[in-house]
């Protein structure tokens, strides 16, 4: 996968105060991101069911996104999701479905629960702006090690590279009692 994450942070690790400053700056910078694309693999576990798929997620600011969900063993497209404010279309198994909520569509048609509204922010290592953050734990560089929001615990286990603005490489999300989502980001592209 992408550049291996160096184990030890760089020598000029920031002190606590800077960690907070970096954390604030990160959120401000990322809020101005106009578009981004994540390509990686997602594993979902819910009670004794699990699914894993390759995902390509193209997000255009807050207004639209497109997502390709593929079978990792065959590369065949399992589902295509296209979202704009208030309306989401899901194509799967040759049929098209529409709803206001992508999460409801994925759960209903594919039995997969993905907190996409929150993930739109969490996968980049920032909290969702529109709901309170119950808890956050920062590393020395001001990147989140863990954050808790809207019932989900989001743990960051690896970064694309070793500076405070790095994007995540390995993310584990969990929601009590029995839902787990693992995201491995293999390629990030961002635009401001």
């Amino acid at each position: 996968c992408a550049a291996q994450h160096q184990a030890a942070p760089k020598t000029d690790t920031v002190s606590g105060a800077d960690a907070q400053a970096n954390w604030k700056q990160r959120q401000a910078d990322f809020a101005r991101m106009s578009a981004w694309r994540l390509q990686g693999k997602v594993g979902v576990q819910f009670q004794d069911q699990s699914a894993s798929f390759n995902m390509s997620w193209l997000q255009n600011g807050n207004d639209g996104y497109e997502m390709n969900i593929k079978n990792p063993l065959t590369g065949s497209i399992v589902a295509y999701l296209k979202g704009s404010p208030g309306e989401v279309t899901l194509q799967t198994n040759g049929k098209t479905y529409q709803d206001a909520s992508a999460e409801r569509l994925l759960q209903g048609q594919l039995g997969v629960s993905l907190p996409l509204d929150g993930m739109k922010y969490w996968v980049r290592g920032v909290p969702a702006p529109d709901s309170p953050v119950q808890k956050v734990k920062l590393d020395a560089q001001g990147r989140p090690e863990m954050l808790q929001q809207s019932g989900w615990v989001v743990a960051y286990n690896g970064w694309q590279d070793n500076d405070w603005k790095a994007l995540p490489e390995k993310i584990n999300l969990s929601r009590a009692p029995d839902t787990k989502v693992k995201v491995i980001a293999k390629d990030w592209q961002t635009r401001y």
Partner: peptide, 9 residues
Amino acid sequence: YDVELDQVT
């Protein structure tokens, strides 16, 4: 066993 995801079904 999906080695990358550390997930076994």
